[in-house]
Design a protein around this nucleic acid. Structure first.
Lengths: 148, 148
DNA sequence: CTCCTCTTCCTTTTTTTATTAGGTTTAACA
DNA sequence: TGTTAAACCTAATAAAAAAAGGAAGAGGAG
């Protein structure tokens, strides 16, 4: 039925699109030695199969006054309400349900401790939590495509 | 000197490009009621200012046999060597230096516990660590652009 | 084996999109 | 008040994407 195999060529295309989602077909086709209609056909198939899920611009969070990263682990029983709160929050960029002592792991991007304090206040009522300030991002969402 | 102000229009453009980095200028220009050369000019400036840092394709990690997410917090004194190891690792997609009891926070994407076990072995020699399995990603890198 | 079908790729043509050129308006400021 | 710079526009040109049509090869069924 659903054979989602991707070959070496697909991998190369995906790698290029991961680096630059707006790279023209002509350039991709040149880099991997394949005609641009064929490249396009492969990309379309990868999209249809749901392997490529989208294309996003990335921003410099410092320049958007969101340079401060904080991770929070939190334990709560009011899960649905908590998730809603996170979705509405302008500062929470990532939310995971996790195993272990805590239920959730949040990534928060704020300008300063001021906003962070406000968020912490909101979170407090949901249960105990632990926070870590992110000092430096050394690797950022680098998915290695080779052999999948 | 470097006034990095972005206005309402820039925000709208950025929001659209965050949703779909490959949206044609014509569509953006229609959605925000501005001519496409003007839209292009703004995008170019946002890139030049370093506010827009890139465009990336996103993938379904399940379909790439990388569906399992694990977070590891680790304390080590061999920082440089540890960072090198992480950079070389095919499975580690994110690495942060953090404050507190642990030095580093890693995000690991594997197929199964098997690969995870191998990684844990490698990590062990660097120092004590704590792991959490990510059960579900509820919010994924959603940066709210409004008022920056 | 041989015909059929499906996939993948190609080249060529057409359509769409991006870029450039040139000009208008407005605001800031000497 | 004249000058400059920024931001926008329209129109023309250049570039890229999409569509059309077809060839080559792999695998299955008779």
């Amino acid at each position: 039925m659903g054979k989602d195999l991707i070959d070496k060529t697909d991998q190369k295309i995906m790698k290029l699109l991961q680096q630059d989602a707006r790279m023209p077909l002509a350039k991709i086709s040149q880099l991997i030695s394949m005609s641009s209609p064929s490249v396009k056909e492969r990309i379309t198939k990868l999209e249809e199969k749901g392997i490529i899920t989208g294309y996003r611009a990335t921003f410099d969070l410092d320049k958007l006054d969101r340079g401060m990263t904080t991770f929070v682990m939190l334990k709560t029983e009011k899960c649905q309400r908590f998730i809603e709160l996170c979705r509405k929050s302008k500062w929470i960029t990532d939310l995971y349900r996790i195993s272990g002592e805590y239920n959730f792991l949040l990534k928060i991007q704020t300008n300063s401790l001021l906003e962070l304090k406000e968020i912490q206040n909101d979170l407090m009522e949901y249960g105990p939590s632990k926070s870590f300030i992110g000092m430096e991002q050394l690797i950022s969402n680098q998915v290695d495509i080779s052999y999948s």
